[in-house]
Design a protein around this nucleic acid. Sequence first.
DNA 1: CGCACACCTGAGAGCGCTACCACCACAAGC
DNA 2: GCTTGTGGTGGTAGCGCTCTCAGGTGTGCG
Lengths: 329, 329
Amino acid sequence: MTAAAQRPATLEDVARAAGVSRSTASRVIAGTGFASPAARARVVTAADQLGYVPNPAARALVRGGGVRLVVAALGASAAVLDDPYVDRVVGSAARVCAPAGVGVALHWLALGDPRGLDQLAADRSVCGVVLVNTTEDLLAAVPRALHGRIASIGIGSATVPSFDVDNTTGAGAVLRHLYGTGRRRIAMVTGPRWLPCAQRPVRAYRHLMREAGLPERVVRGDFTAARGREAAGEALRRWPDVDAIYAISDETALGVIAELREGGVRVPGDVAVAGFDDIPLAGMTAPALTTASHPVGRIAAAAAAAVLAGRPGAPVTLFPSDLVARDSA
Amino acid sequence: MTAAAQRPATLEDVARAAGVSRSTASRVIAGTGFASPAARARVVTAADQLGYVPNPAARALVRGGGVRLVVAALGASAAVLDDPYVDRVVGSAARVCAPAGVGVALHWLALGDPRGLDQLAADRSVCGVVLVNTTEDLLAAVPRALHGRIASIGIGSATVPSFDVDNTTGAGAVLRHLYGTGRRRIAMVTGPRWLPCAQRPVRAYRHLMREAGLPERVVRGDFTAARGREAAGEALRRWPDVDAIYAISDETALGVIAELREGGVRVPGDVAVAGFDDIPLAGMTAPALTTASHPVGRIAAAAAAAVLAGRPGAPVTLFPSDLVARDSA
DNA sequence: CGCACACCTGAGAGCGCTACCACCACAAGC
DNA sequence: GCTTGTGGTGGTAGCGCTCTCAGGTGTGCG
């Protein structure tokens, strides 16, 4: 009958309708403790008829658990809040949290403000925190009260488990592909300096270049396409003989390509360009972008699930990144 | 001193520390009712010292308000949950809700299941609902209990306020641009048939074509780039003389361009292509995409804010869409 | 002086739920 | 018979907060 009750039904209503006590009804609904098959059936049908939905707020109040999982994004300015990457993390977290009756909130952590996490730790409605754009400073400022219910997308620490793409091997695969197709003067457009997880591919790049005896050529970027354009110009000016550019993100790579082609440089004829992320559009551009996959959604979901479960799990969980060779390199 | 208390402070703790009753402390914290300046000051400093943060769950329990705003996305399959558009809506809603201590949850509504909204209505932890991908069926199934705390991104009804981009004028601007640059055989790649808000630009297209005495050429799409490719092939087969393709989304447009160029068709030389949304990458592709802006974030934020405020507001709020003329058309 | 009318305060109920504990059956074992 | 379970049940105490209500104080006015 799904009575769309004017005033939502409470557990009390269900218990009365089923002819049992509130305790028994609670046990059946929560699936904890004993209940005879007969009682169970009566409670279930009563709940169904009344359209009963438990109130997570009340449940959280007594159980002590929170009702919100906070995605805490660090950033130099509120601009991070417009970041589509952050949106994807929030969306993925929301998918994971919804079945548990847990909502997701987005919280901006100013770059130099260690008190932000204290506030989150003191908020009893917060069941856990997922850190985005994590820095060492931030990890050091994680209050003890958050241990066991915090995870980081990016770098982690002894107390904060880390979930990230394996961009060391991802970068390796891309760079080896570049090398394998004859490129020898490979430049890299990096992410912002303050973001540690953006340093990993840079380290991989430097390591591989050194190993292969190739020159290291680094231009600072920031994940955006606009910065990619500028970086491409800069790279061309500083190293006119560059024959490949590896960008930290697909957006950046697309910016690089746009700038290159506008300057009459052929891609991949003169300069090969590779990105990272494998965004849906990567296969649709001209030339189709060579890149490596970055399962943002799965990473965020795993981090959220770990926080929700309350068990720290492995200190570091790396998600594989696969080379997607298309036309741009 | 921001004591990062092991066990978060409660209002009781604050009251004791300030030497007042729980009632007075509550009044000061909630900013409601009378309180002498002296008492107020003592409570405020005590709360500060203890790092007190009110518990939204407890507050919601007694006040009757919810702790979650639900973004309810309708879709033919769970695939909608991977939709980056939905992610953006969730992210924007999260930004708006966070200051109020409200979390955001994502809820998938199966296409033929009217009970989904009943469940949401009965859930006391839900303070409001933002509908995405709204259909007439869905609007008809909105339970009375949700009136006043539900909004729709897309089409609305007498009881459900609507927030959307003004894609009638957006489409108009794009089509007029196409016409103004000499195109006369303009095809359109639409969105899925079951999505009413995707019909608006189609209606605008048909209206304008009829008005200008031009043939109506419609191919069904679904917002994705992959479908854009197929649609382009189909359009070319059915109308070899087509000289412009207007796509429902930038992604689709990019798919169209990819297919066209692969088939040796020059863009915009032979066929002009225009999209809709003005995604960040639109200016970076080759050729740079002509499109119209679509302020998804602002729309979602407005819808969430309206729901949060609890006042229905204007029945329809349209956000302007501006033509962004680049190279593809 | 008494009374109204501010302003301010604390006791206490209760939001919906779970957890603990006491209790009741009935079965099996000494 | 008395224990000792084992499965099932209801009573009841809160979780942290808000809000009503009954009381305080102090002023101004008849």
